[in-house]
Each structure stands twice: as structure tokens, then as C-alpha cells.
């Protein structure tokens, strides 16, 4: 059997794939956090809860409305975005201009509230959610068997991440967003409805978490705590990539997923903490993060 550094190839590729899948979720979630933090200066601790909400929205659409995976892939993020925008308009808005700590505490409380609410109604055991018919089974891609749904998750998250990046870097609304991130008062003085832009941006960031939630539903079980398990690592990813950097969030997300996967092969004992070790090193050497600007 082929081996690389004494490791059987299927073992290596298998872990790499798991790393890439995890990296897909890290990238999607840290991208949303970066977009929100960039413009709103809010550290959105509720992001994991919105991810969970996306998964539950998909589960409810299926079980209560009979809407399947593909419909949920569009509807669930929309629902999450609307919830996010209502929260921004009615509550989060009051915290702009205050110390970052207030936004952080508020969203942290919001996350506890959402998770607690779902735990009350659904308990801690997960709800099963089947992958869509078209994506069941596996494909032989030469050096390994690739489960179709996992391949789809990697492709879909890449498309969403690159699409988001293109919207921000190449479109007019992206130019508003970038400019408002630098100096929102001036952009508003130019006649751009910045309060609306803030609402839409928060909604969009939450929708990205919602997409991740729908993609995750068939892989992991739909459970009220799925977000809080993931979000701690995602915050480490954001710190490593640099707060507010769009491309940094995407690249770091995938990179750390892969590093974690490789670690499981070569030094499994450290796999659970490798991200945090990297975070500590980055904080010591480059406090602004790998892609962050010193300010």
C-alpha cells in the first residue's frame, strides 16, 4: 500500500477530507463574523446560535412544511437573516457607539437564550436529518472513496465563500461596505443609507451562518448545542486570520481545518488543541492576525 511519511494514503486522504469539511464550516462561519465585525464592530457571539438556527430551520421546514433540503438551502438562511435583521433593528442598534464589550455581552446572552430555548423544546439529543437523495452514496475518485455529500459541502462552501468575497470586492454594494468599514460617517454624509447597510450586513453575516447550519444538518445531528461546540474554534480561527479581514477569514478557515486533519494523522493527541496553540503563537508574533492590518 502507498504510504506517505509512513502513513497509509487512505488514512491521510480521509483525515484531509475531514479537515477540509471542518475547514469549510470554519471558513463560512469566520467569514460571517469578519463581515459583521468589519462594519458593525460587533463581536457576534450569537454566531454559533445562528448556525444552529439554520440547521433547525432546515429541520423544521422539512418536518412541518415538507420542504426538502434544496428548498431549505435557500429558505433557512433567509429565515436566519430575517431573525438577525430584526434583532439588529430592535436591540443591537442601541449598542453602537458603546464599548465593544456591550455588543459582545449582548450577543453572548442572545446565544444562551436561543440555545436554551431550543434545548427546552428539543432536548439535547440531536434530530436526524437525511442528506438529499441526489447526494447519497460515494464516488471513487481514484485514490479514495469520496462520500458525495461531503464533496458537496466542500464545493458549496467554497462557492459561497468566493461569491461573498466577489460581492464585497467587485460590486457597488461591496464598495459601500468597504468604505463604510473605513469611515461610516463620511459614507453616510455622501448620501448612502448606512443604517440600512448595517442591518443588511448583519443579516447577511447571519445568513452565512445559516447556510453553514443547513450544510451541517445531514453531517452532524441537528442539536441545540451544535453551535456552541463549534464557535469556540471559529473564534480562534478569526483571531488567527485577523479580525475583519475577509480573505483572511476564508483562507485561515480552510487552512486550520486541514492542519487539524493532518494533526489527527501525525499526532492525534494534539488534534483538539492545535488550533489554540497556533492562536497563541500568532497572538505572540502577530497580534493583528495573519491577514490583519496593524492598527
Amino acid at each position: 500500500m502507498t504510504t506517505i511519511f509512513g502513513v497509509a494514503l487512505p488514512v491521510l486522504t480521509g483525515q484531509l477530507l475531514i479537515g477540509l469539511i471542518n475547514g469549510s464550516f470554519y471558513a463560512l462561519l469566520s467569514l460571517g463574523l469578519a463581515v459583521i465585525f468589519g462594519l458593525l464592530r460587533i463581536v457576534n457571539f450569537a454566531h454559533g446560535a445562528f448556525y444552529m438556527l439554520g440547521a433547525f430551520a432546515a429541520w423544521m421546514l422539512l418536518n412541518f412544511a415538507g420542504i426538502g433540503y434544496w428548498g431549505a438551502l435557500f429558505l433557512a438562511p433567509l429565515i436566519v437573516a430575517v431573525v438577525g435583521m430584526v434583532i439588529e433593528r430592535t436591540m443591537l442598534r442601541a449598542l453602537y457607539g458603546l464599548d465593544h464589550l456591550y455588543g459582545l455581552l449582548f450577543t453572548f446572552g442572545l446565544a444562551l437564550l436561543l440555545e436554551g430555548g431550543f434545548r427546552h423544546y428539543f432536548g439535547t439529543s440531536g434530530q436526524p436529518f437525511a442528506a438529499p437523495e441526489a447526494l447519497r452514496g460515494a464516488t471513487n475518485i481514484g485514490f479514495m472513496m469520496l462520500p458525495n455529500y461531503r464533496g458537496w459541502v466542500v464545493v458549496a462552501s467554497l462557492v459561497v465563500c468566493l461569491g461573498t468575497w466577489a460581492i464585497i470586492e467587485k460590486t457597488k454594494i461591496g464598495a459601500y461596505l468597504r468604505a463604510a468599514t473605513e469611515n461610516s460617517t463620511l459614507v453616510q454624509a455622501f448620501g448612502v443609507n448606512v443604517p440600512l447597510l448595517l442591518t443588511l450586513t448583519y443579516g447577511f453575516g447571519c445568513a452565512l451562518a445559516g447556510v453553514a447550519g443547513v450544510l451541517a444538518a445531514p453531517l452532524f445531528q441537528v442539536s441545540p448545542l451544535m453551535g456552541s461546540n463549534l464557535i469556540i474554534i471559529v473564534f480562534a480561527v478569526v483571531v488567527i486570520g485577523g479580525m475583519g479581514s475577509i480573505l483572511g477569514a476564508i483562507v485561515t478557515g480552510y487552512m486550520l481545518g486541514i492542519v487539524e486533519g493532518l494533526c489527527k494523522v501525525f499526532y492525534p493527541e494534539a488534534a483538539n488543541i492545535v488550533v489554540f496553540v497556533i492562536m497563541a503563537i500568532v497572538l505572540l508574533l502577530r497580534p493583528a492576525g495573519l491577514f490583519g492590518k496593524d492598527s
Partner: peptide, 19 residues
């Protein structure tokens, strides 16, 4: 002056909406 670093010259130029 309020020139935006993350925008190109042309993006800066076309940023303010025509009113």
C-alpha cells in the same frame, strides 16, 4: 479628505451616489 484605502481610485470616485 476621506479617501478610502480599500477602494480603487475609480471606486472612490463613483462612491457618492448621484443625488
Amino acid at each position: 479628505r476621506g479617501i478610502f484605502a480599500s477602494l480603487t481610485v475609480e471606486e472612490n470616485l463613483t462612491l457618492p451616489p448621484v443625488v
